[in-house]
Write a protein that binds this DNA or RNA. Structure first.
Length: 276
DNA sequence: CTCCAGGGGTTCC
DNA sequence: GGAACCCATGGA
């Protein structure tokens, strides 16, 4: 008998993660609900994710085994290297942080690829989550490389850079189409470079991102947080004020699904940088 | 029909 | 700096 050595799925303990809340709270727009779980892509990788109790299970749409490289990729994507329960316990010493933690304790900040995070949050401007996700999906299927199982990768900057806004008409992204192309061009030409952004001081990276048409303070903050693992250093009161200005200009909403998660993500990242 | 959704650009002052 | 207005699109 030959032992089965390939792994057609990977499982790990979520460490208190709520998969559904994490995927659909508004930090990522690359996941879809399917009959047997949540199908999503990141970079050149695609998976179907499920949660059974505390266990997170990932499998390929076609059932293919995972390589070591893919396992590491998803491990990093879901930030499984961080001890969230311990992190949250520390946050709860602060009143504002505690409120964010208690709103939805199962949310983790995902580590998403830079370019797709940038474009997704450009699309997000003056828009709502279901439509953002629909536009992202059309962007992938229309301009991305097929990954099998009906999934498509997020298009590369080089694929979008030569296009004209009318070429993106099928996205139904409206006036944002020219923003997407400008972002793709600046990344493809190296005027905006992920490695350089990561090496920069966060405030400088923020300014650099804002040179892209359609990227202002809010989009830049989201890209720094979700796509670059970076955040600016600022005193707590400044940071909280910015988060609240961005997120809840009219005051904290009561039952708006996802919003509490966004607040938590904002605060979590700040706290990770400053309370360590 | 009007309003607005996780903004940003432009054009004023 | 801040305020008004516009930008496409689709759902309530």
């Amino acid at each position: 008998m030959i032992e089965e050595t390939t792994k057609n799925s990977m499982q790990f303990d979520g460490g208190g993660m709520n998969l559904k809340a994490t995927l659909f709270c508004g930090q990522s727009f690359s996941w879809q609900r399917t009959e047997d779980g949540f199908a999503g892509t990141a970079g050149n990788h695609c998976v179907v994710a499920r949660q059974n109790g505390s266990t997170i299970c990932l499998s390929h749409p076609g059932g293919a085994p995972f390589t070591d490289k893919e396992e590491r990729f998803w491990h990093t994507y879901f930030a499984m290297d961080l001890d969230y329960p311990a992190l949250q316990q520390r946050f709860c010493a602060n009143k504002n942080l505690r409120a964010c933690v208690m709103a939805e304790p199962g949310i983790r900040v995902l580590r998403q690829p830079f370019f797709e995070t940038l474009l997704a949050f450009i699309i997000s401007q003056n828009n709502h989550i279901p439509r953002i996700a629909a536009i992202v999906q059309r962007l992938k299927t229309g301009f991305g490389a097929p990954l099998g199982g009906g999934q498509f990768a997020f298009p590369l900057p080089e694929a979008l850079a030569p296009l004209e806004p009318e070429d993106l008409a099928e996205l139904q992204a409206g006036y944002r189409a020219k923003y997407l192309i400008d972002a793709a061009q600046k990344v493809a030409l190296g005027q905006v470079n992920e490695g350089e952004l990561r090496a920069m001081l966060p405030e400088d990276a923020r300014k650099k991102l804002c040179t892209i048409l359609g990227v202002g303070s809010k989009v830049a903050d989201c890209v720094l947080l979700f796509g670059l693992g970076q955040w600016q250093t600022a005193p707590m009161d400044v940071w909280m004020k910015r988060a609240m200005t961005h997120l809840f200009p009219g005051g904290m909403p009561k039952e708006t699904e996802g919003f509490e998660g966004i607040a938590q993500q904002y605060i979590f990242h700040w706290a990770r940088q400053n309370l360590a």
